[in-house]
């Protein structure tokens, strides 16, 4: 897995693939929870909805910026792959963008428009979150299927669309356990319990499908001795799921103990699943067609970006953490004052 660090044409694509992978993962966890809150939105009472919005208000913009970074890195580091992937996924990308537009603006409009329009913006906020999640799940499914477009792959993509959507609802619910209290928190625990299955089903379906679709991936996983340490990934996921399951049955604990834990564990679970996926596809960026080395932009241009990234990414992480610290604690209403 490790590149030859003496040769820029070898390690630069690797470094960019890692950076891109990292930003996709951060995006999936962070925007995952705020999309999830949007998906759960209609299940709550109006006064709880304002609290739910309050819990994601200061963060959603920065969360989405990780998507911009991920696409940006794909665009700048692997331009050919960017073209192939996005023009193949033309329609789901369009659906996702419309979804993102709808929820992003509904978020602002619902609080500023006249009262009788508020219900409309609320509905749009939910619909936008739902469409975005479905479209992302659909794209994930097609990607796992090697970007082939047949009836079967569409069916599989439709399944992953549902799994990812419920998965986002799940991580959104665990976020709400952390950020809310009382009746809403109880509901959030309920929602988390009810949606845990989708996370299991989704991870299961993709883990089974990937090696079956591609012989190369099959060999990567099931050769001796790699299979021994690779076994750790499913074991770890299993352990995390078990912990979640037991924890959620007992939540909320007295004096709000451990309310951060479900969110932390589910982030870990998402990361584990993602790691498995990344291992399967490495070194391909377009499955079984184009490797990161074939698709990479010129080394001198990549180096220019990387130097900047080395300074800037830690700063970004630092002030993102600052924002989370400032808005820590239970969510209240949001005011511009």
């Amino acid at each position: 897995m490790l590149p030859d660090f003496s040769n820029p044409a070898d390690w630069l694509p690797w470094a960019f693939a890692s950076l891109m992978g990292l930003s996709i993962l951060v995006y999936v966890v962070l925007d995952g929870f705020d999309l999830g809150v949007g998906i759960l939105f209609p299940l709550a009472e109006p006064h709880e909805q304002d609290r739910m919005i309050g819990s994601i208000g200061p963060f959603w913009d920065a969360n989405e910026t990780w998507l911009v970074l991920a696409v940006g890195l794909l665009l700048v580091a692997f331009p050919t792959a960017h073209g192939i992937i996005l023009s193949t996924l033309y329609l789901p990308v369009f659906a996702m963008l419309i979804g993102l537009i709808a929820r992003g603006v509904a978020f602002e409009f619902r609080a500023k428009a006249r009262t009788r329009h508020k219900a409309l913006w609320n509905r749009l906020f939910f619909a936008g979150s739902l469409v975005t999640a479905l479209a992302q799940g659909f794209m994930l499914g097609l990607y796992v299927m090697g970007l082939e477009q047949t009836a079967q792959t569409y069916l599989f993509a439709a399944l992953t669309a549902v799994f990812l959507t419920v998965g986002y609802a799940f991580i959104g619910a665990t976020w709400l356990i952390l950020k809310t209290s009382d009746a809403l928190q109880l509901k959030a625990v309920q929602w988390a319990r009810q949606s845990l299955w989708a996370v299991i089903a989704g991870i299961g379906a993709i883990s089974l499908a990937t090696p079956l679709v591609s012989a190369r991936i099959f060999d990567k996983w099931f050769t001796f001795p790699e299979v021994l340490w690779l076994l750790l990934l499913p074991l770890l996921s299993g352990g995390l799921v078990l912990m979640l399951w037991r924890l959620l049955r007992r939540m909320p604990l007295p004096s709000d103990r451990l309310s951060w834990l479900p969110f932390a564990i589910s982030s870990g679970l998402f990361a584990t699943a993602y790691l498995g996926l990344a291992y399967s596809f490495y070194p391909y960026v377009v499955p079984d067609r184009l490797t990161i080395y074939e698709a990479a932009a010129a080394p001198e241009s990549l180096l220019i970006i990387l130097i900047g990234a080395c300074f800037v990414v830690p700063t970004i992480i630092a002030y993102s953490i600052l924002a989370y610290v400032i808005f820590r604690g239970k969510a209240t209403e949001l005011r511009y004052e």
């Binding site: 208000g57 200061p58 963060f59 913009d61 920065a62 989405e64 910026t65 911009v68 970074l69 800037v312 970004i316 002030y319 993102s320 600052l322 924002a323 400032i326 808005f327 949001l334 005011r335 511009y336």
Partner: peptide, 14 residues
Amino acid sequence: FFLEAAFVGIMLFG
């Protein structure tokens, strides 16, 4: 973008 996105939350709600 990250600069704006991270601080706009503090600017608006902080």
